[in-house]
Design a protein around this nucleic acid. Structure first.
Ligand SMILES: [Mn+2]
Ligand SMILES: [Mn+2]
Ligand SMILES: [Zn+2]
Ligand SMILES: [Zn+2]
Lengths: 136, 136
DNA sequence: TCGTTGTTTATAATTATTCTAAAGAAGATT
DNA sequence: AATCTTCTTTAGAATAATTATAAACAACGA
């Protein structure tokens, strides 16, 4: 259970003023027990459903991107027509149920450490992500 | 060095008639030594450059998708505004140079076998892909 | 309260991708 | 080879996710 004060802190850290709309976005994003995988469209609809107030799509996009830049949200590489985000910003891997179009977290122990034996001169590793696609 | 006969065979296998345009597409896609990572737009421009003949964008999209359906091309999951394809259709992993927006193949031995210890009832694993993002 | 700066929103713009339908080419049949 | 049928190419329109714009509005510090 996350408090409104924490939302305000996250917003301030992201150089965003705590407005009613942004607090509502935070409510849907961060007031949860488990990790939340979503598209902008998912989020947009959940805000209406959960708070009863509509936030414009532009504000949802802008706020999500600010949180992403700040590291409060993670972008999950999936080939889909929509971009997927994740409230679990730790390094972790995913199942992607292709039929349901749903992401499921994999614990690191379910995959094990991944040692990359190759390197590219002048480049360093930023992230290592495993995506396991599921079918019926 | 792949021959025109092989292109025709690939096309026929994909239920496509071997037209001049599709042969040109094959020329750019498959007449290579090493694996080729590309977006539709890359391919579209390379066809003009390499064959001197323009193929319509719609035909490029349609042909790439037919090859993809048939398994002659692989789609690489990347969050980009454009979809990436790969002529290497074997199971393998990638570096993605975020700045250059370039994919680089990783040999399986550079990553090692990946054992997924978790399973979802009613679902089976379709693919396991590692994406290693690179920064400067 | 006032002034400044940042925010929201409807709406337009952008861009990758897909669709459409008319003109053209491939393959089969004679 | 001429003809018929089916598939293909293409320009342009349609779609859909995302981003940009700019006018009305709200947060905040003085
Ligand atoms: Mn982003
Ligand atoms: Mn495809
Ligand atoms: Zn996750
Ligand atoms: Zn590859």
């Amino acid at each position: 259970m996350t408090s409104k004060q924490e939302f305000i802190e996250k917003l301030r850290n992201s150089s965003l003023r705590p407005t009613k709309q942004r607090i509502n976005i935070c409510e849907v994003l961060f007031n949860r027990d488990k990790t939340f995988h979503f598209t902008i469209n998912d989020l947009f609809n959940l805000i209406k459903d959960k708070t009863g107030e509509k936030v414009s799509l532009a504000t949802v996009y802008n706020t999500v991107h600010a949180f992403h830049r700040k590291g409060y949200l993670k972008e999950i590489p999936i080939n889909s027509n929509q971009t997927y985000f994740d409230t679990n910003v730790t390094d972790h891997h995913h199942f992607f149920d292709v039929k349901e179009e749903k992401l499921i977290d994999l614990k690191n122990e379910d995959v094990g450490p991944i040692e990359i034996q190759k390197s590219i001169p002048g480049k360093k590793i930023k992230s290592v992500e495993v995506l396991v696609k599921l079918e019926d």
